[in-house]
Write a protein that binds this DNA or RNA. Sequence first.
RNA 1: CGGGGCGUGGCGCAGCUUGGUAGCGCGGGUGCUUUGGGAGCACUAGGUCGCAGGUUCGAAUCCUGUCGCCCCGACCA
Length: 600
Amino acid sequence: MRVTTSFPLGTLRDTPSEAEIISHQLLLKAGYIRRVNSGIYAYMPIMLRVIEKISAIIDRELNSIGCTKLLLPQLHPADLWKKSERWEGYTAGEGIMFNLKDRQGKEFGLAPTHEEVITSIASEIINSYKQLPQCFYQIQTKFRDEIRPRFGLMRSREFIMKDGYSFHSSEKDLASFYEEVGNAYENIFKSCGIDTVGVEADSGAIGGASSKEFMVTADTGEDSILFTQSGSYAANIEKAVSIPSQPIPLKDNISGLIETPQQKTILEICEKNNLDPTQIIKVVVFLAQFEGKLEVPILACIRGDQHINEVKLFNLLNKLYSSNLLNLGKIEDKNIIEENLVDFPIGFIGPDLDNNTIKATSNWDKKWTRIIDHSASNLSSFLSGANKVNWHKFFQEFSFTSKDYIVEDIRNAKKGDRIKDDDNEELKEKKGIEIGHIFQLGQKYSEKLNAKFSDRDGQLKNLWMGCYGIGVTRIAQAAIEQNHDKKGICWPIQISPFEVIIIPTNLKDPIQIELTEQIYKNFLINKIDVLLDDRDERAGVKFKDAELIGIPFQIIIGRDSIKKEVELICRTNNTKFKISSDKLLEKFISESEIMYNKNS
RNA sequence: CGGGGCGUGGCGCAGCUUGGUAGCGCGGGUGCUUUGGGAGCACUAGGUCGCAGGUUCGAAUCCUGUCGCCCCGACCA
């Protein structure tokens, strides 16, 4: 490609002010993307080459484990999503699916994911166990109406994703294929030249049994991951399970009420009354809104030094009730409290709060669903709210089980916690960017969409399904987050838009021009991804741009052309080779091989 | 959704307090010089000052409304 005739660069002198994190700034400044709207970007030619490189790596690895590529529609009829009972959840409330009506008033959604479509198609083409297993994937734009798009391609409303869906005759076959995909993913990320860590994860709105996320560790990541140094355990903080520290026992001779005016936080209460947070049980009230207008008030209890994990709580409630949980939020709005509750001393709620606090006229479920975390369930003596404004109460020999409490893990694991009783290894925390996620869906979708096959015994059975995602555009940005310096991007060679850029320093010099053309043609013939910066610009301008866009190798053609000598420079470590032009190709090939091998 | 900030040529910004009819740097174009690290000089093109009302003889500037963009966010029970 020639910069002047076929490959304009579009680099900027200044960084657009909208970008906060370095990878986003570099994508804009180096001319890879242009913002069209909040969370909506155009991929410029140079960006498309990166996307295509990543896609090719994905194709290679997935094809090697027998996956088949196809392309599914992005406009999905609501009916299909109503069958899987996800339409409401994805469109109402905090729903992330863009949706619209056609001229006949028929409802559609713009696909955020494709389980429904692929399952309905698979059910039509798969009839027998003899056709299984089967895995289809596509690489395509997804649409999500994010609450707050940010960080460029990291959280955008339109992004490119590889999504794959597998179909199996048994749970066992699904589990073993899931492992295979996990391994293929490791290869893909390694081949892309990025460092990732696989962690246990929550399966979220997609649903299903087991799921694993692949994270790029970076300080700008939006997720927190907890792991042990030895690698024995790694999980997303939403999912992580750990052992809380030992509580300090409360003296058993304390009882009764204490006045706690103006003491709003656990810390204040501890300070003023000489207590430890582990001796307090905090009670948090939530309202769970289910599909079909069912609203259930929740009383969630946890030890004072711990925090409630709303993802765990969400999942628990979703399991507890038969209809879909749409929204879970704390009860704190004055008007809502006024309308539905009576004698409700917010801030001083105790675990023994009476069901009578829910007004008879309220639309809510008439009794509190009571949940207690493991960290607090075995405390029998503790301080908690007295159900009276400005008062707390010492409870003695309180039994949660006898008060209809459901005992579950609804607690946030945190760094410093231990994993096992017999192991002193502590959890550490890092930020991560999720770039891949694999799920064992089980039969959730096949059941709802009636996707069956005839098994060996002639019986109709539901297909076992897995689903597997990779954020293609996110990989590109995460790679920059991991590979850059003051001058600009330092692409891993595997996903760089070009492997090498040729920079003639003076286009007025016919000797340079001739040598440049000769080298350029030779590289093209040898199928090397080469960009020729043939702009009639000063050398400095072209050097700066080459560094900014991050091509791993530069060939500088300058004064020594007369001696048929050029320079080969490695972008990352600035190594320079002065070399005769007839040895150049050979040298480039060996140097680039080293780089390919180092990264993969 | 709540809180904060910002909308002025392609990009980065000043001007607004104290109204008088828009400016700087970069980028673009032309010419000359320069030519291995974002060159110099000269000329030049390019702006509904986000949008809509209002106040005023006069609004980028003051008032009201509206739209858009960016950033931050619930240790609190």
